[in-house]
């Protein structure tokens, strides 16, 4: 019951390894002096400008494997930009981003490698309307991981079952409700068997009665050990599942703590203001 635990056990130093592996190993070793597993995501003093507007200011964050991080903050705080920098839908101008041991640069091949291991779920679902639900989920495995079609379909059906909509497999996205579409989007991202999942405000575009079904899927996913970075306003989800909550405001990380500490003992005025605005009655 629940998600099959991804076989992403902490990496020991391998006996035989391809040259890229050793490179990644030494990089990872250089970053964290402990003998812990290499962190999944490292943002090191990342700066980004949109024209003259400074949207990310010296953002530094490390996300370990199997860690669940929730990012929150007022609109315009740069949280979506930060998460989109992680799979290079936006590119940063200063600082370093290392994802799964590979540094994010303009190198296209490195980018392809990273995007294969990082799945993303968007606020506006972005399902492909001209393909059925099943085809949406098998498109990338077939064309990127070169999986044979029958196998890809089987795996896609398994994920659709896990998001609890296997009967919609042959429907088109336009025929589904918002909550169903977002669950298909999650299944589509998972079908690539990524190591890291990014969520960019996944429930903000949904009607209230559909938010729960999507959050349930995300909670099960988190409890199965997936590394997750999630931008959301759903504080109940953060409290239940997050290892850390990061509060961003005006492009920089203001506070970063466990959910309990964050919500019970906010240390800065900005966080106090934000919490008062969104935690009405929580």
């Amino acid at each position: 019951m629940g998600w099959s635990v991804n076989s992403r056990t902490p990496k020991p130093v391998p006996a035989e390894s391809a040259p890229e592996e050793t490179n990644r190993m030494s990089q990872a070793a250089a970053l964290s002096p402990q003998t812990e597993p290499a962190p999944a995501i490292v943002l090191d003093k990342v700066n980004k400008w949109f024209g003259a507007l400074h949207v990310l200011r010296d953002v530094s964050l490390t996300v370990a494997e199997r860690e669940r991080v929730v990012v929150c903050g007022p609109s315009g705080s740069g949280k979506s930009t930060m998460i989109r920098c992680i799979n290079r839908l936006e590119s940063h101008q200063k600082g370093r981003i290392v994802v799964d041991g590979t540094e994010l640069t303009d190198d296209l091949r490195a980018l392809d490698t990273i995007r294969r291991e990082v799945g993303m779920v968007f606020q506006s679902f972005n399902l492909f309307p001209h393909l059925t639900v099943l085809e949406n989920c098998t498109l990338a495995p077939i064309w990127v991981r070169k999986t044979p079609k029958a196998e890809a379909q089987e795996q896609a059906m398994e994920y659709l079952r896990r998001v609890k909509i296997p009967e919609q497999a042959n429907k088109y996205p336009g025929q589904l409700s918002g909550g169903q579409q977002q669950r298909v989007a999650i299944a589509r991202a998972l079908a690539m068997k990524p190591k890291i999942m990014l969520f960019d405000e996944p429930t903000s575009a949904l009607d209230p009665e559909m938010i729960k079904e999507v959050l349930d899927v995300m909670i099960e996913l988190a409890e199965s050990g997936m590394t997750m970075v999630c931008v959301t306003h759903e504080m109940g989800f953060a409290r239940r599942v997050a290892d850390r909550v990061v509060f961003m405001d005006e492009g920089e990380i203001v506070e970063c703590n466990t959910p309990h500490e964050m919500f019970e003992n906010p240390k800065t005025d900005r966080l106090k203001l934000f919490l008062s605005q969104i935690l009405r009655g929580h």
Partner: peptide, 24 residues
């Protein structure tokens, strides 16, 4: 739960980074 990494320099940091102009 996995241990919270301590290499995070911004844990509970309060100081603000000033706005800068882009390099180029």
């Amino acid at each position: 739960m996995p241990p919270v990494p301590t290499s995070d320099p911004t844990a509970a940091a309060v100081r603000s980074v000033p706005r800068q102009r882009p390099a180029t």
